[in-house]
Computed example of a mutant assay.
Amino acid sequence: MASTDAPDIGPIIQRERKARHLTLERLAALSGVSRSMLSQIERGESNPTFAVLWGLTQALKIDLADLIAGGVAHRRAAPVDVVTVPLTPEINSPEGHWRLRILSPTAMAGRVEWYEVEIAPGSRLHSAPHAAGTYEHLTAQTDGLRVKTALGEQLLGAGETARYRADVEHEIANDGQLPARALMVVVYE
């Protein structure tokens, strides 16, 4: 394959799907990609968008980079896997009011995820409801954080952990005068 050729990902997707004993229908349900689109991709008749590839790699729990490189690497794990600070993904609010550093591996997305949360004074991180049965566990590292859900609210002190349903509207607010920090674990049921 020349370096300018697109990788032939259809057979890789099909191989990984079959290795997991998934039908086209089941992978379509897990990934959000229609069965007909998935079939076209596997046969090499469709060129998927990034969003489609992301959905498929998340559903199959494979690394997007490995898929694009032409195959899923089955390499021996290092005794200690380190993700450096520059390679730790972040989600930032457009206004700079909050930051989420994604600490969990991408393969766990949609099952269990953990984040380092930082919220500016007087700001809040508002979230729409997640999937049914989802819970968040927020451990405050500083004072001033307040968790509010459609079912109630609670102010947290440093070191306290709030556990709450996240399948309803919810937010984490910083009522303090200094930036607030916390660790958050999201568990999808």
Score class of each variant (00 low, 15 high):
Glu95Gln: 14
Glu95Asp: 15
His97Val: 01
Arg99Ser: 15
Arg99Gln: 15
Arg101Asn: 05
Arg101Gln: 13
Arg101Pro: 10
Leu103Arg: 03
Pro105Asp: 08
Thr106Phe: 14
Thr106Arg: 13
Thr106His: 11
Ala107Arg: 12
Ala107Trp: 00
Ala107Asp: 04
Met108Leu: 15
Ala109His: 11
Ala109Arg: 15
Gly110Pro: 04
Gly110Leu: 06
Val112Thr: 15
Glu113Tyr: 09
Trp114Ser: 15
Trp114Glu: 10
Trp114Arg: 15
Glu116Ile: 01
Glu116Gly: 15
Val117Met: 12
Val117Thr: 07
Glu118Ser: 14
Ile119Gln: 01
Pro121Asp: 08
Ser123Asn: 04
Ser123Val: 00
Arg124Val: 09
Leu125Tyr: 13
His126Val: 12
His126Gln: 15
Ser127Gly: 05
Pro129Ser: 03
His130Ala: 14
Ala131Ile: 01
Ala131Trp: 05
Ala132Val: 10
Thr134Gln: 10
Thr134Leu: 02
Tyr135Gly: 02
Glu136Thr: 02
Leu138Thr: 05
Thr139Asp: 04
Thr139Met: 11
Thr139Glu: 06
Ala140Asp: 00
Gln141Thr: 08
Thr142Ser: 15
Thr142Ala: 01
Asp143Leu: 04
Gly144Cys: 03
Gly144Asn: 07
Gly144Lys: 00
Leu145Ile: 03
Leu145Asp: 00
Arg146Glu: 07
Val147Met: 11
Val147Gly: 06
Lys148Asp: 11
Thr149Trp: 05
Thr149Ile: 10
Ala150Tyr: 00
Ala150Arg: 08
Ala150Thr: 13
Leu151Ile: 12
Gly152Arg: 07
Gly152Tyr: 03
Glu153Tyr: 05
Leu155His: 08
Leu156Arg: 05
Leu156Met: 10
Gly157Ile: 04
Ala158Pro: 02
Ala158Ser: 09
Gly159Glu: 07
Glu160Trp: 05
Glu160Val: 00
Glu160Cys: 05
Thr161Ala: 07
Arg163Thr: 11
Arg165Thr: 07
Arg165Met: 09
